[in-house]
Every structure is written in structure tokens, then in C-alpha cells.
């Protein structure tokens, strides 16, 4: 029997996906299904929370945007 699962399809870089999986590993409250290394389905209600957690994680690794040149 065909199943239809409601959710949000997330398409991103493999690196971002790895981070999402590591966030999810703690309590499994985000990911519904992994599809391939750039695609996964997450729970409908958790998008904003996931975005927030992702930003938090990336803050440590990413260089802050710098403003080159003078005015």
C-alpha cells in the first residue's frame, strides 16, 4: 500500500545535512526520513526550531561576514 507522509522536504549541501543529522541524533525530534546525502524530510512543525539550532551550530564554525573597503 502506498504511503503518503506529511512533512517538509529539505534540500541542502551534504555538510549542512550532516549537521542536521547530528542535531537530530540527540533526541530524534526533527528528521522524518533521510532520502539521500542532500535531501531529507523533516517534521512539519519543527522547521523554525531546526533553523535556530542550525544557526547556533554554524555561528561557531563560520567566519562572521566582514565589511571590506571604506566608504
Amino acid at each position: 500500500m502506498v504511503k503518503a507522509v506529511i512533512g517538509i522536504l529539505v534540500q541542502c549541501d551534504p555538510s549542512i545535512k550532516a549537521i542536521i543529522m547530528s542535531i537530530d541524533a540527540a533526541d530524534n525530534q526533527f528528521v522524518v526520513e533521510e532520502l539521500d546525502d542532500q535531501t531529507l524530510v523533516i517534521k512539519e512543525s519543527q522547521l523554525s526550531e531546526l533553523k535556530r539550532r542550525l544557526d547556533e551550530q554554524l555561528k561557531d564554525t563560520q567566519q562572521p561576514p566582514e565589511d571590506s573597503g571604506s566608504d
Binding site: V2, K3, A4, V5, I6, G7, I8, L9, V10, Q11, C12, D13, I16, I20, V32, E33, L35, V41, E44, L47, L54, L58
Partner: peptide, 10 residues
């Protein structure tokens, strides 16, 4: 960082 789409997985 990610592109999101609401919908259904079959």
C-alpha cells in the same frame, strides 16, 4: 543553507 518545501513524501 537549505531549500524547504511543504508537502508529502510518497
Amino acid at each position: 543553507r537549505m531549500k524547504t518545501t511543504y508537502g508529502f513524501l510518497f
